[in-house]
């Protein structure tokens, strides 16, 4: 007991990071984010075993700093898009079932500005687009986090009062354009239910 406390207290060695795991995603139709949302990926994707929030699942091709595909499998009324550090004192903006495409764009913007400390967030496009066979939205945005400019594309729609959405984010230099076609193909393959 003492030894353990001593070792930790002295902090003479860097603590090992919490071990997160990655699993291969099979290139067949899979349901994601413990929901009825399903997609058909190509080979080469890795799934993070950690769930950032209950209804989110993250994939990556090369590592989450270089390309990240987030699946939101039915964000419910009054739920945020990311984990809240302090639910009472630093609440994140919440999803509302009456939101339109422009509102979802603002929801993402506010969330990213807070969670990624990105004051230069700019929305580049908000347009109607089909998602999982029904009218939905497509968004594009850009922001700087840690001096690295990142871009994002989100597609989704609201079904039965819940938000289903797939978001691809990557550095604006090279990785966004390089990964977007593969991410977009997965978005195109989305089905709900």
């Amino acid at each position: 007991m003492n030894a353990k406390i001593m070792t930790m207290a002295l902090a003479l060695l860097l603590a090992a990071p919490a071990v997160a795991g990655w699993k291969v995603v099979a290139p067949t139709r899979v349901t994601v984010a413990q929901s009825t949302l399903s997609v058909t990926p190509d080979a080469g994707w890795n799934r993070w075993t950690v769930k950032p929030i209950r209804n989110e699942e993250r994939w990556s091709l090369d590592g989450p700093l270089l390309n990240r595909l987030s699946f939101y499998g039915g964000i419910a009324q009054d739920e945020p898009l990311a984990r809240e550090r302090n639910r009472k004192r630093e609440p994140l903006p919440k999803f509302d079932r009456t939101m339109r495409a422009t509102d979802i764009a603002e929801l993402i913007e506010r969330t990213v500005r807070i969670t990624e400390e990105a004051p230069d967030f700019v929305t580049e496009a908000v347009e109607p687009a089909t998602f999982a066979g029904q009218p939905g939205f497509r968004l594009r945005y850009r922001y700087t986090a840690g001096e690295l400019v990142r871009r994002g594309e989100a597609r989704g729609r609201i079904a039965d009062g819940r938000l289903y959405m797939i978001v691809f984010t990557a550095p604006a230099l090279h990785y966004f354009d390089a990964g977007l076609p593969r991410a977009a193909a997965i978005m195109d393959s989305a089905r709900i239910g």
Binding site: R100, T102, E124, A125, E127, P128, F137
Partner: peptide
């Protein structure tokens, strides 16, 4: 406007 398409639809 960047959200022209969405606003036009509305």
């Amino acid at each position: 406007a960047v959200d022209r398409a969405a606003l036009q639809a509305m």
